[in-house]
Amino acid sequence: MKQTTIDIKNVRTLGLLLIGVLLLATLPLYGSPYSVIFTTSIIMYIVLTVSWAIFSGPTGYLSLATAAFFGVGIYTIAILGEEVQLFAVILLGGVASFCLALLVGALTLRLKGVYFAVFTFGLVELIKHVLLWYEIKFTGTRGRFVVVVDNTTIYYIMLAILITLLITAFVIRRSKYGLALQSIGEDESAAAHIGVNVNVVKTITFAISASFMGMTGAIMATRWTYIDPYGAFKSLYSFMPVLMAIFGGLGTFYGPILGATIFAYLEELLITEFPYYYMLIIGSILLVTILYMPNGLVGVVQRLQRRISGGRGANP
């Protein structure tokens, strides 16, 4: 197990993190309104990617249900946004996704590999179409309005979610519980042999990761003012976290953060600069990543560090 001794490297990392948080926390004071909105989008992608990686990273279960939990959050605020106070709705969005993930997890986490991936993908479509059917049949309209919240508030709430998530991810990674998750990924049957309650560990982690996606959906929906099932349950939100995590480097703590930040920035840049070639360029980058950078950006950085320090590997 990695020792949590306080050495120079840890102090330096902590210092850098604090400076980062301070810069982000004061952004609305010195940044332009556009930079606040743009940073909110980046943070959203980081949260979706890191919360996806909490579960899928160590266990190797490829979940494509991110859009489902994100969408449940969106619908929570669309339904309750008028009556319930903002913070309470966001928490409720998290709770709703948590409960859905518990249910889904208990039912399906015995599925392995591609079966689990396909099921989670199907879950998004299932919820979307049930909602469509319900809205057409009972409310007679498709879609709903969402309460409007100003951009600075959205930004600070997203930042708070991000910080909570990073602390959660870090604590899980360093704990006995994190070891259990990793052991499930390496050999689930051996994990059961040594006394890990694999079903409970998997289901709870899946639900924790889902609750962050739900909260994110609830607050981000206020930016769109109008939502319908097609917009709320877009499978794109399931695939982006996977791509971003692979791009940054699965299985490391910083990989998904780095991947999501650069990928989201790149996406924005390409959409504004090369609107017609944007998908082509993104696709090419992904191909190169998978072919030549099996451990993502973090893998490349580590290899460079190792070359510089002459063989001594750095811990991720």
Partner: peptide
């Protein structure tokens, strides 16, 4: 202790 040991390879 299972057949073949089944240690966690990447730990």
């Amino acid at each position: 202790v299972p057949e073949g040991g089944r240690v966690f390879p990447d730990m």
